[in-house]
Amino acid sequence: AAEEHPAEIWCDSLKLGNLQLVSKLKNPSDSCSVDVSSVWWEVTGCKESCIITACEFTVSLWKSLDNWQWRKVYTWHFTEIPVLQIVPLLDACNLVCVALGHLEIREIRLLFCSDDDECLKQSLVKSGNIKAVLGLRQKRLVCSNGTLHDHRVDLMTFSESGRSKEKQTLMSPEETILAFAEIQGMQDALLGTTLTSNIVIWNLKTGQLLKKMQIGNSYQASICHKAYSDMGLLFVVLSHPHGKEIESMGTPIFRLIAINPKTALSVDVRPYSLPQGHTGRFLDGEVKDNLAAAVLTSGTVAVWDLFLGHCTALLLPNSDGNWSFVKWSDTDSCLLAGQKNGSVFVYSY
């Protein structure tokens, strides 16, 4: 049998791979689940890593108990516009942002608790036609909004309590930004990808647009996930939600390219494809350090080790249904995988 179906045997050994199920959170809400993330929060006087889940009209914070059990401690409610995604502010404590909208983001709200009475609060941070948003370290948030003629890129910095914010405008590349990505280890640099296959770099301290670099037509509508600066080059992880299948290498879900920011020249380094026998396009995903995870249109989650260059784990749809969103926990090597019915599974990697 192994000789007849070598690809299937290999895929079987990949299922779960390095992932081990450690716990499950079940949101009893009737509404559709949309996102999950991890966040630092001070609960009963102690700062700890919590899980935050989003349904269409609620966002809930879960505190860890013993033995990988979770208890819901806070729920913020929204009435008019549904939640689209959680926007974590990476190293912030007691602060998290959410993006609300229908198909496109219409509002970004900051969620926090008041110092005095621990009442749940939310404040409107930005409204309008928001195209891309990313939470950064040092309680900063960057978002691009507006159309071609009134395009703006804003950087906001929040105070510890979330009550006030400083706002700075970054120079616009004068085209639609699809996504932002931090450059690991360079807190004053920010990278973005645009609708017309440009990669742009900003200096966040000065607001300057440092470079706009064309990366070719094969990268149409690429989403940047993470960048690393090394030896004078930028290594950028991209996904291609509209990418075409390349027969010789299967379906590349992520791709690593190297760019020389001084000359704007770039080369392909490596595609990250699905194992033989698996198909699907990129739906949702996240890159943390050397690990990339993606939910595919097939309902499967796939994990790649960017250094090893191949898929190291597959989570096939289970009896509850397809996977619909996936995130890495910020504090430990855990994968948070969620389904529309409100189930979030925590896997250690």
Binding site: T206, L210, G232, K262, L265
Partner: peptide, 23 residues
């Protein structure tokens, strides 16, 4: 990746681009 593919590489690219870009 080599200089033949990517052109001259600078370790201080961020500082250099900042000084060259419009304020």
């Amino acid at each position: 990746c080599s200089e033949s593919d990517l052109g001259p590489i600078s370790l201080n690219w961020f500082e250099e681009l900042t000084s060259e870009a419009p304020p």
